[in-house]
Every structure is written in structure tokens, then in C-alpha cells.
Amino acid sequence: MDLHRAELAADSLPSEVASLDAAAVIIWANAAWLLAAGNELGELLGGCLVGVDFIRQCRARRTTVADSIATGVATVIAGELRHFERDLTSADGLRIWRFQASPLRGSMPGAVLIRSETTGRSRTAPWERPDPEDIPIRIAQLTPREREVLTLMCRGRSNREIAAELGIAYTTVRSHVQRLIDKLGARSRLEAVARAHRAGIA
């Protein structure tokens, strides 16, 4: 299996997700989280089942890592931090997990916790493919109108909005979009946008 396929396989692993209320009690967790409660990461954090006070459990472990996670989550729940992230390594150093917490706001203060194994994974999205080597040539083959359309696509505009801004028909914009996606060798609208942006367009 090549590296890209291995990353794809790793990225398809389900995340473990739980939500905490304002008192840091786990009020919901998905099946992956519950299954992982007994694994090495679950052990590290003191088991984390629904109804458990997550911060208290972490503190009870009396380890530096668990303590730092407890502090991070408490800070998130208090609304003092928008995002907390910590990578954790297994005792043998061969496995890595990423632990993330984000605040809930509004009518129900609390936090969302996400854990996932990141061993061997890059931080590149699994669907992000490398640009073709001849991308400058491909971009040079775009017509001036296609470049205009692409620039507006990079601003997030829809085809309807592009048609209005350029004063051309909606169906004409659709043709331009499809043609420029093909010329850039992209699989999708947003992949074309990403390639154009990296090449300096918009």
C-alpha cells in the first residue's frame, strides 16, 4: 500500500466524539468513544463513560498529560479558549492520538471532545491531491474570461453570482467553470480553486 492509500485508510477511521455539559460531565458519546474507553488512550484519561466527570477523572490519573488535558478542557468550558489540542503518544512511542476540545455556547455551555488516532497521518486532508507538475502551463492555457471566472470562484462566488458580476449568461458561466476545471486537471470545483490559489491567482 503506498503512503497516500495508507493515509486515506487512516483518515477513514471514525473519530471518537463526546460532549460535556458545563460541569464537565459527559452527556453524550458516540459508539467509537465508548469502545475506546478501555483502550490505552482511555486508560490514560481514566476511562470516560457517559455520566462521568471528565475533568475529575483526568485529575485522578495524577499524570502530567492527563492533568494538562483537564486544564485545557476546563479552560474551554470556561469560554477562555476557542480550541484546545494536544497530541498524545503511547508508552512504546509507536502510536499517536490527537485530542481536541471546542466550546459549546448558547443555551448549553460545555465542550465537544474529539479524539482520533493520527499515527502515520499527515495533516493534509485525505482528499487533497498534489498539484500536477505542469500547473503553470495549464493555467497559461486559460482564456482571459476563464481566469476572470476562476478569480471569482476563488472568492467563493456561485455561478449565478459570477454571471451577474460579469454580465453573462448563467449557462455560459457553467461552461467556463467546467472547462477550466478540466484544464486544471482538477476533480472538483474547490480543487480547481485550491490549485489556482496556490499558483497565485486570487
Binding site: P14, S19, I27, N30, M108, V112
Partner: peptide
């Protein structure tokens, strides 16, 4: 969420929606 990689969860689900329901609770 049983099929969702974390990046898609954060970058898509949470960034694109003003509100979310997790565990049957709206926030």
C-alpha cells in the same frame, strides 16, 4: 459521526453550520 473523520467533522460540519445538534441537544 461513526463514519466521519475528524477533519471533515471540524472543517465541514462545525464550520459550515451556525447551530449543531450533538447527542440530541441543540447548541
Amino acid at each position: 459521526v461513526s463514519e466521519l473523520p475528524d477533519r471533515a467533522l471540524i472543517s465541514g460540519g462545525l464550520e459550515a453550520h451556525p447551530c449543531v445538534v450533538i447527542g440530541g441537544r441543540l447548541t
